[in-house]
Simulated assay, not measured.
Amino acid sequence: MNTPLDLNTVLFAQLERLSEPGLKGGELEAEIQKAEAIEKISEQVIKNNNMRLSAAKLVAEYRGVKNADSVEIPQNLIG
């Protein structure tokens, strides 16, 4: 998992697992705990990506870049 698209895929896969009709009892509880862990990690990944994107915007503004094609955006932020 290296891009926001990969993260999105993981989050939707987890949502599908949580909605499985046969999931009950201990299996359901285990899946809920896994979902909570994924959510916490996802929050940190998103915060980190937002910080990196803000840094790229700041560099572009500081350098006076007007053309978006000349701004170097970290590749794993855009896939």
Rank of each mutant, 00 (worst) to 15 (best):
K40R: 10
I41Y: 06
D69Q: 09
V59D: 09
E16K: 08
A37D: 07
R63H: 04
L5R: 15
A35Y: 14
E16M: 11
A37F: 08
G64H: 13
D69N: 09
L23N: 05
L23S: 05
N76Y: 02
P74A: 03
G79F: 05
E36V: 02
N50H: 10
V65I: 11
N48S: 15
I41D: 08
I32S: 00
Y62R: 12
V71S: 06
Q14H: 05
V65S: 03
I41R: 14
T9C: 09
I38C: 00
Q75W: 07
K24H: 14
K57A: 14
V65G: 00
R63A: 06
L15K: 12
E36T: 03
V45K: 03
L77Y: 01
L7F: 07
L28K: 15
K47E: 14
L18Q: 13
S42F: 06
L77Q: 05
I32A: 02
L23A: 07
Q14E: 13
N2I: 01
V10L: 14
K47C: 11
N48H: 15
D69P: 00
E27I: 03
M1C: 02
V45W: 11
K66L: 12
N76G: 06
D69L: 04
G25D: 03
A13V: 07
S54Q: 08
L53Q: 04
E36H: 07
K47D: 11
V45D: 05
G25Y: 12
A35S: 15
P4V: 10
Y62K: 13
E20V: 00
S19A: 07
E16P: 00
E39P: 02
D6W: 03
R63I: 02
E72A: 10
P21W: 04
L7D: 08
E20R: 15
L11M: 12
